[in-house]
Structures are given as C-alpha cells and as structure tokens.
Amino acid sequence: MEYAFNTFEKLINLTEKRNKQIYELMQEKEALDFEISVNDVRNKTKKIITAMKEAVTRGLKSREKSFSGLSGDDCAKLIERYKNSKSVFGKLFEKILCYSVATMEENLRMNTIAACPTAGSCGIVPAIIIALSEEFNLTEEEEINALITAGAIGYIISSKIAMAGAVAGCQAECGVAAAMASGAAVQIMKGNIEQTINAAALTLKNVLGLTCDPVAGLVEIPCIKRNAFMAVEAIVAAELSLAGVNSVIPPDEIVDALVQTGQLMSPLLKETSNGGLAATKTGLRITSELRKKEEL
C-alpha cells in the first residue's frame, strides 16, 4: 500500500488515488512509521489541543510580564478595547487576535504551550483552530482533523527545510505556522483538498524573505505581535482559496523558493540578533539594559 509523501503534489495524488482526506493520510503515515495505532495518533493530537486551549484560557486572564519586562499585557489591552468597542471585523476577528497573543504571552512567561511548529510561532495555529471551533461549533474529532491537516502541511515543508529562524528566518517559523493554519481553516470551512493546499501556498508566497531579528535574542519583539498578524494572514489565504483564487506558482515550487530565499538571507537576519530590528538604536539600547539587569 502506498502511504508515504514528502511533497504537496504527492500528497494530492495520494488523496485522489486512495480517496482519503489529508488528515487521514497523515495519521495513517504516522501510525505506520512509528508502529502505533491511528487512535494513538489522534489521542496524542487531542492532548496537544487540550494544552493549546489551556494556554489560551490562562493567557486571556494574565497580565504577568516576561522576565525582560518588555511584554505581557498586550492581550489585556485587546480585551479592554473589545469590552467597550467593536473590532473592524467582528467577534471572530477579536478572538483570533486575542488567542494568538494570549498564547504567545504564556510562552514568554515560561508557562506551558504547544510548539507549533516552534515556540516562537506557537500562537498562530491554536488561534485559528480554537476560534473557528467556537464560531462553527466543531466537535473534538473535527478539531483533531484540523490540527492533523495543519501538521501535514508543516510536515511536507519540513522535508525540505528545518523549522528554525536560524536556518531560514521567520519564514520557517511564523510563515510556516500561518501556512499550516490556513490549511486548517480551509479544512474547517469544508473546502476541498486542492483548496487546503492552495491556501498554504498563498500564505507561503506572502512570507518569503521574512527575517528573524528579535531584539536581545528574546522571543518577544517582534514575535508576539507577528503571531497576531500571521493568524489573520492565514484567514486571508483561506478566504481567497475558498473563493477559487489559485496560486499560479505550484506549492512545491514555492517551498523551493522559500528554501532558496532562506539560503540567500544574511546570517545577520537569521536568529543571531545582529541585524534588522535587533540592531536598531532602540533594539541595542534594550539589549544593553537587559544585560545589566541580568548581571544584578
């Protein structure tokens, strides 16, 4: 039986050949590769969703600052705003912003999160799956299907590039997370398999060249806010894709472009905190103030 895939083209072929959904192929592959049952795969995924929900719940209530003191109350500010006024796009939009920031703030407080695909991009996929689940009353099984679909997209991308800012900048962290989330959103909205992959493709095209230049090397500036931006980007891609707006460049070729762009990017912009935002006047001042604080 044919079950392995490491490109989007191969995945789409397999779904047609075997008349299966993306999540079905992914969970089957994982079960076969690691000699566990499909049920084990789904139970493990369910535990991750539980951890994601717990992080959101805690994050929505907290104003605790990070060790650096630079961040920790952005979600509280959003909640405060929505108490008295409506957001441009309504309730679901508010939730997506709040959940992504809440999760990232839990991360920087050294609380528990699910790295998805990395800790620095941990707010994007949960924000989409949990907010859409609440909006459209998903069952637990549907949430699991959505997260495994997101995972399959990341899995294919990771066959060509490591998910690390040090390797390819933020393209490979928040960029990939947004591609994963856009696929999950299409799956939740009952789009077809091509639309699911196409949404990921549209997202990836829009993140090419995204740098990883966090101030003082911390997963805070600009990472927290970027998670909110990228969660919204995932929805834009899903909406375009569901409307039949296709990427002219095929998804696997976009991944190749991402890999090449990552190689061409200066090391200064790949998680070294020696360029970009980290090397701005203010970035450097914050860095030196933190070093002093740490020595105390």
Partner: peptide
C-alpha cells in the same frame, strides 16, 4: 511539527 507541549 505540532508539538512538543513545553514550557516556553
């Protein structure tokens, strides 16, 4: 890709 569940 979708884990680990970890302390940040």
């Amino acid at each position: 890709i979708i884990s680990p569940v970890m302390t940040g």
